[in-house]
Structures are given as structure tokens and as C-alpha cells.
Amino acid sequence: MESEIKKYGCFVKGVEQKYPNVAPGTPIYANAVVVDNIVYVSGMTAQKFEDGSCTTNTMQDQMWVALSKMKQVLEEAGSCLENVFKTFIMLKDIKDYPVMRATELKFYQEYAPELAEHPAASTILQAGCLARPEFLVEIECMAVLNRKKD
């Protein structure tokens, strides 16, 4: 049985981030890829989709923006936050862990109460540095596209 793969491109200033639209050496990626019933969301940071700028310099705000973008990408792919079963969170500095987790909980309580009640599997890594020096956190996830309702 062959798997179906659907890719959801990354756009900045309305331009898809792929060659020849980006300079050599610039990262190119899809915001999400769907394989069969699994959605793989690329790492989301506090970088604006509109112009590539970083939105803020605090962990709380950067985490909120990254989670908001993750939610948006999941919905564009046909899924939702409540379908997330795995997250991978990279921190520039592990000292930000408590603020990151508190922000994550508050976000899930507001937008995905089931995740607040029954969290996804999660891995945390202190990356030391992320794609740009101003980024404090990056989060990626895996979710099912559709799930059976009880």
C-alpha cells in the first residue's frame, strides 16, 4: 500500500520559501507534511510568517507565538491541537523551562483543554542556539489528521 504525502509550504511575505525564491544557504522547508493520517509540523518559532521578523524577546511571548503558529499550521493541514500526540521543544536555555511549561499549560487550557488534561508525549532539549540568536524556543509536533471519537 502506497502512502499519500501532502506538503504545506512555508510562506514569508507571500513568497513560498523554496528555491529559487530564497538565497542559497537559506533553510527551506514545509510548515507541515501529512503522511497518511499523521501530520508532522516543522519547528515553529516566534518568527512572523508575514515578514520573517521575531515578534518578541521574552520566553512567555515567544512560546505563545510558536504555539499559535503550530495551531494555525495544524488547522491548515486539516487537523487541530487536540490531535497532537507528540511535541519536541528546543530551548535556548533550560532555565526557561518553568516559564515555557507554564505558558504551554495556559495556552492549552485556552485552546486545547484536552491537552491540558491529558498531555502529549514530549521531549525537551536545551539546544544552546536556535536558527537565529533572538529565538528562545522552537516547538515541533506530530498529530493525527483524524481520530476516532469515543
Results as ranks from 00 to 15, higher is better:
N83V: 08
G128T: 06
M90S: 12
Q72A: 13
P20E: 06
K71R: 12
E2F: 08
V35L: 07
M44P: 02
N37E: 09
F49W: 15
A120K: 10
L136C: 04
L145F: 02
K69T: 04
K6L: 10
K7S: 12
Q60E: 15
Q109P: 00
E82V: 06
Q17S: 09
D150E: 15
K7R: 14
F49C: 11
T45H: 03
M1C: 09
N83I: 05
V22D: 00
F85G: 04
I5K: 12
L125M: 14
S68N: 10
T123P: 00
L145D: 04
V73D: 02
N57E: 14
P20W: 05
M70F: 04
K13N: 14
E140W: 00
K149T: 14
K149H: 11
E110F: 07
G128C: 04
K48V: 06
R147P: 08
T58M: 02
K71C: 02
M70Y: 06
S79T: 05
Y40P: 01
R147E: 08
F85L: 06
Y97T: 07
F11V: 11
V41G: 02
V12K: 02
A121E: 14
N31F: 00
A30G: 05
M142Y: 09
A32K: 03
V41H: 01
Y108V: 03
P27A: 14
A23N: 11
D150C: 11
S53D: 10
I5Q: 09
E110S: 15
V34K: 03
E82Q: 08
G43Q: 07
M142R: 13
C129I: 13
K48P: 00
F49Y: 15
I89P: 01
A46M: 05
K13P: 07
P119T: 01
D36P: 00
L125G: 09
L115F: 05
N21I: 06
F107A: 01
S3A: 11
G52L: 07
F49L: 15
Y108I: 04
K7C: 08
I28L: 07
A66T: 04
E104W: 08
E104A: 09
V144N: 10
P27T: 07
V15I: 15
R132K: 14
T26Q: 05
Y19F: 13
R132S: 12
E140A: 15
K92R: 13
T26H: 08
L105T: 15
L105P: 04
N37K: 04
E140Q: 13
Q109S: 09
I94A: 08
A131M: 12
P20F: 00
K48W: 11
K95W: 00
K48D: 06
Y97E: 07
F85H: 05
I28R: 09
I124T: 08
